[in-house]
Design a binder for these strands. Structure first.
Length: 497
RNA sequence: CGGGGCGUAGCGCAGUCCGGUAGCGCGUCUGGUUUGGGACCAGAAGGUCCCGGGUUCAAAUCCCGGCGCCCCGACCA
């Protein structure tokens, strides 16, 4: 309820709009702890639906779930030089194991008991490579033990300066896959495979178009050999990194001594990968599809796919439409559709419409006396118009409509992204583009970190990915769009979240 | 860590300049009438005015000192 508040229009203030949509769709709320969020039932349901789809895909590609601890010995983080460098600035530490009463009141009533200081502080995991590979070292002896294909669903903590609901919070939920392989080629194939899984999920479930590709040195994961990523373009033309997959090489294997005996009797380090997506995707979902009326959710991830709203005047009409509404609900449920029958009597139908629209329900069925008489319901799409539908075969009609909505959302989002992309940019076009509306800019790149840094400094744009073949321009650029030196790869730039 | 905004009922805000003991809208509760795009009438409940000190006969309001939140930038998934 409480639908009277207005959502700030996107055009007025995109950040405010985003906050309003998240809050009014009841996806999440701010917690008493700065930078942390509470994921509310409606938002958590979206996450559960995401988890289920992804988990099925992980299982189908041979992975098993496991769980590793929240606490990691501080020294573990330090074992891989690049890794510790990457995370040192944002780890939370556990230094004591108990509190002591001070006799004061309020916030000063308790204090860490100095007697209980840990000899070695524990870090709250910002990611689990170190503790997982420490365990892999115990479990892996022979080439017969490989590959190891694990995943865990968990929370992690990164102490961020500035946070935003779902997009960047101090604590967030994610999954992290961790694998060990006998050869570099296998590890590379795994990293690429999982990038493909993410792409399938984001395109087909989230209806969010992504560009896949490789990260440059400056953007890759701390400790990885190579990082691959998926980048989506939000409605404000800023890019969102929606997932990453890393070929870790033997960096962690060497740091944690993960070795195996080969068939020939030699001793080799394993090759690792890690890959993850997080609740950040929910932020991506919001900023890809939603409008000034609230959340727009693709049917496959909508907690409520269909809402049935009865309309009546007299008691007789009420019992009539309620009967039909109940039947429709039951029939849709039998067809596996997530449906809500909104029988609340204290709200007028219009108020219900606004509420369910803010919550992103893709399809609404209105049933009034006139519909009952005509053997039909009125269908109203969250995005798109109203049309009557025969009661007979309603489940089929609705299923088809949901599929059409899902496909339509992907197409709309992809068209929008393409309309905000330019290819083969020159330096001046690039500067103007980034200063103006922004979006994805494709151009030649010399590969130098110096060029990258200068571009970032002058335009706030970074290389999002060196795109995979599916996304490259028909003609490979010959020179770096910035410095004019020979291009080593096409790159996609954007200002990013 | 810089720049901006803000903290008063569950939510959104007015009142602060110019001190006089707190109000509006929405929501909530009760009863009744309503219901094809945000219902109406009547009644009711609900507040340490962010915290601490100071000035004053009197502080939401003035002074000093804290704390917290949001937005923008630097850093980052």
């Amino acid at each position: 309820m409480a639908q009277a508040q207005k959502i700030t229009p996107r055009a007025k203030d995109f950040s405010e709009w985003y906050n309003d949509v998240v809050m009014q769709a009841e996806l999440a709320d701010h917690s008493p702890v700065r930078g942390c969020m509470v994921i509310r039932p409606h938002g958590y349901r979206v996450w559960e639906l995401m988890q289920r789809a992804l988990d099925d895909m992980f299982k189908a590609t041979g992975h098993q779930n496991a769980y590793f601890p929240l606490f990691i010995p501080m020294s573990f983080l330090a074992r891989e030089a690049e890794h510790v460098e990457g995370f040192a600035k944002e780890v939370a530490l556990v230094t004591h194991t108990r509190l002591k009463a001070t006799g004061k009141s309020g916030a000063q009533a308790v204090t860490p008991d100095p007697e209980s200081a840990l000899e070695e502080p524990l870090v709250v995991r910002p990611t689990s490579e170190t503790i997982i590979y420490a365990m892999f070292a115990k479990w892996i002896q022979s080439y017969r033990d490989l590959p190891v294909l694990l995943n865990q669903w968990c929370n992690i903590v990164r102490w961020e300066f500035r946070t935003r609901l779902f997009l960047r919070t101090t604590e967030f939920l994610w999954q992290e896959g961790h694998t060990a392989h006998a050869t570099e080629a296998e590890a590379e194939a795994e990293a690429r495979q999982m990038l493909g899984v993410y792409r399938t999920f984001q395109e087909q479930w989230m209806a969010m178009p992504v560009i896949t590709g490789r990260k440059t040195e400056s953007e890759k994961f701390a400790g990885a050999l190579r990082t691959y990523a998926l980048e989506a373009l939000m409605q404000d033309n800023k890019a969102l990194q929606a997932g990453t997959s890393h070929n870790l090489g033997q960096n962690f294997a060497k740091a944690f001594n993960v070795q195996y005996q080969t068939a020939a009797g030699g001793l080799e380090y394993v090759w690792n990968t890690s890959w993850g997506v997080s609740t950040r995707m929910i932020g991506g979902l919001v900023m890809t599809h939603s409008d000034d009326n609230g959340l727009v959710c693709p049917p496959k991830l909508a907690p409520v796919q269909v809402v049935v709203v009865p309309i009546w005047k007299s008691d007789q009409e009420k019992s009539q439409v309620s009967g039909v509404g109940g039947q429709v609900k039951a029939e849709l449920e039998r067809a596996g559709i997530r449906v809500e029958f909104d029988t609340r009597e204290n709200l007028k139908p219009g108020a219900k419409y606004f509420e369910w629209e803010a919550k992103g329900v893709p399809l609404r069925l209105e049933i009034g006396p006139r519909d009952v008489a005509a053997g039909q319901v009125m269908t109203a799409r969250r995005v798109g118009g109203k049309a009557p539908a025969k009661l007979e075969g309603i489940a089929k009609t609705v299923t088809a409509a949901l599929e059409e909505i899902q496909a339509g959302m992907f197409k709309t989002a992809r068209d929008r992204r393409e309309a905000s992309s330019i290819r083969g940019v020159t330096k001046q076009q690039f500067i103007d583009f980034m200063k103006g509306a922004g979006g994805f800019a494709y151009g030649g790149f010399c590969g130098s970190g110096a060029c990258e840094a200068e571009i970032k400094q002058q335009t706030a744009a970074t290389v999002r990915v060196l795109p995979d073949p599916d996304f490259r321009s028909p003609e490979a650029p010959k020179t770096c769009m910035w410095c004019g030196q020979p291009s080593v790869a096409e790159a996609v730039w954007a200002q990013a979240y």
